[in-house]
């Protein structure tokens, strides 16, 4: 197995995730795209862990999974709050940051 086949898979997933973050309007779908990005990073970490014969990558992959779980929890909390206040979770409607 080549190192690159895993890394390319991760790169493709990453780019799909980026596309999703940009293109999606629904906040829940945006969060899902972020999960794609995080998973591609995990694949990278584990590939390099195998390549270098160390276990550090595993530790960080686990940490990323934990952080992702926390992120989803808080993210969905935010989405719920936004929904309650605005009756929509379309991120296009949230333009309070307009300059």
């Amino acid at each position: 197995m080549f190192v690159n086949q895993f890394l390319f898979l991760a790169a493709v997933l990453f780019c799909i995730g980026v596309y999703g973050v940009i293109a999606r309007k629904n906040a829940v779908l945006m969060l899902m795209s972020i999960e794609l990005i995080l998973n591609s990073v995990n694949i990278n970490l584990l590939t390099f862990a195998m390549r270098n014969g160390s276990t550090d990558g595993h530790v960080f992959a686990l940490y990323i999974i934990a952080v992702a779980a926390a992120e989803v929890g808080v993210g969905l909390g935010l989405v719920l709050l936004v929904y309650r206040n605005k009756k929509t979770i379309s991120v296009d409607e949230l333009s309070e940051m307009r300059g």
């Binding site: 293109a23 333009s95 940051m97 307009r98």
Partner: peptide, 14 residues
């Protein structure tokens, strides 16, 4: 570009 829309900011950032 100063639209306040998150998706646009994200797109610019990426």
């Amino acid at each position: 570009t100063q639209s306040g829309k998150v998706s646009q900011y994200g797109a610019l950032l990426f």
